[in-house]
Design a protein around this nucleic acid. Sequence first.
DNA 1: CTGAAAGCGCTTACAG
DNA 2: CTGAAAGCGCTTACAG
Lengths: 353, 353
Amino acid sequence: MKSQKNTHVTLQQVAEHAGVSRATASLVVRGSQNISETTREKVFNSMHELGYVYDRVAANLRSKSSTTVGLIIMELANPFYSELLIGIHQTLDQFGQTVILGTTFDSCTIQDRLLSTMLEHRVGGVILSAVPGTSGEAVERVRRWGIPIVLVNRILPGTQCDFVGIDNVAGGQLAVEYLIRQGHRRIAFLGGLAKLSSWQGRKQGYDNALRQAGLEIDHSLIIESPATRDCGIELIQRLLSIPNPPTAVFCYNDIMAIGAMMKMKEMGLTPGKDIAIVGFDDIPEAAIFTPKLTTVSSAIRLMGSHAAALLHARMENPDNEPQNIVLQPELIVRDSCSHSLSAMVPPLDKNLI
Amino acid sequence: MKSQKNTHVTLQQVAEHAGVSRATASLVVRGSQNISETTREKVFNSMHELGYVYDRVAANLRSKSSTTVGLIIMELANPFYSELLIGIHQTLDQFGQTVILGTTFDSCTIQDRLLSTMLEHRVGGVILSAVPGTSGEAVERVRRWGIPIVLVNRILPGTQCDFVGIDNVAGGQLAVEYLIRQGHRRIAFLGGLAKLSSWQGRKQGYDNALRQAGLEIDHSLIIESPATRDCGIELIQRLLSIPNPPTAVFCYNDIMAIGAMMKMKEMGLTPGKDIAIVGFDDIPEAAIFTPKLTTVSSAIRLMGSHAAALLHARMENPDNEPQNIVLQPELIVRDSCSHSLSAMVPPLDKNLI
DNA sequence: CTGAAAGCGCTTACAG
DNA sequence: CTGAAAGCGCTTACAG
């Protein structure tokens, strides 16, 4: 009657209206089996008539459950993370969980604050792409509360934890082997911070490929930097002005590769023709740039999807063994490294192949 | 002592440990002024010693408040929306609010479901980029629950609601006037769905600019479509094969413009030289593409930031007049439309300028 | 299948 | 500044 301004209808009121007890109404809302068809209908009718809205927050409090998951990433502006969010959000949605988002900008302080906030919000679990240098204590604090945590993309040494990531070694190797097959001998590894586990992996793959081809590692061709576009722009310039510049560049990630290619074009160079470029991640931008970027796919959405599934499994079964999911990368060949350079480089020693 | 597996510490226990009442402890946690320094310290010490974590969910339930905001957008894969999310998330963060995200994929059914979920989660407010064709009833249902709602980017006719968006008419006019000044006379308006308020605005701006220059509107140059990259690819092809093709194209948004330019390059055409292209939104990709896309900025992050601020203001002051924030667009001149075409087109009649 | 009671962890008055 | 009591909206046993 007086439902002009829907003053909050409670389950209590629904029960009274339907002529049943609160407990019964509660069972109906939660879809219990042991309720007669007629009772169920009576309750549903009352719900609709009164405009009832289930209060998940109250329910969660009482039953000590949770329908939210905390996601902590570096920043949204990086397409890698928005893709990751897409994957995570999509599969969490299927489990009826909603995500609470936090961005660290790679600051440990912010990450600590976010972790606290998530605990205060009683999240059912946390998906964390950890700031490099995160202490094991930080994740322990969360788990001591009985809140499961899965690490994504970035490994945390010394922590027994569910993890999902890409095989960076294989990825790096894939990229550099390809460049070698294209005839390149001087191949740079550009950008990324050496403290990141993903950098170490990719670098390892780079080393492996070079070594297997009998090529020497020239440390002047390996330059560290934050993995930003601007650094890509800056580093390629530096790299091309050294006495004996590389003919190919394996970039730490696509963002850097795109920065590098932009600068090259500005310098009058044609990426893929004058210098070969390979990226890592396969962000959407890689396919729209000219030339289209040859890159190693990180299967980002899939990674997100796995992270969500892993967390869900862990929430159901807290005491299982920690799982490690390592996705296999794939080389996506596009236009940023053609054969045209092979003429200028000497063939490999026969005995090495 | 037994804090191995931190069994949930409650405020009750903190109070006991500190030798104060529950009420006092509660006041301390919330930072009340009327507490003596010594009491405050005692309580804080106990909190740390016991490893207490404030339960925001319980607090919100009791005090009928909320620290979450629902955000409903079309999809995350569209850079426009991830930029919007960045703006919203950032300023909501400053207000201590966290966002619960939902994506509609432009389906009314999904949107209704999301709205319900948000209500069940007791969000303190909703920021909605509404599916075209959303009934006013849907937003009324939310507001009847006393939950404020702000519309972002897409207007909803007949709804009295806070709103923040861009001046699409001015934006369209800016773009087309620029093309006319560059010497173009046959200018297409490519893509977008006519049912979207933003399409109608941009189209209006297009009409205005043409009319003011004394140019006729040729309806064969106006093609509707979903605002996707693939449609951009498809439409440009169709547009260029008509008997008297345009020399310039104003695209509904940047995504379509990029699709169109990709196709043109594939066809051996140089965007900006053979045909001028202007986009709308200024997504990050616009600055990366070759040629760099000349476009109308939607000030996306700012829009998100305003939406968050508006919602916050409304939550504080539910009974104020609904506010309308209309951002002024800006033309970002880059490389996708040069002067080089001006030679091929006749000058404007003098009496029209 | 139902009802009465207790409780999730906090805040809200209100009397001291 | 403090304590005892009630209550936010729900779920959980448990006896019928």
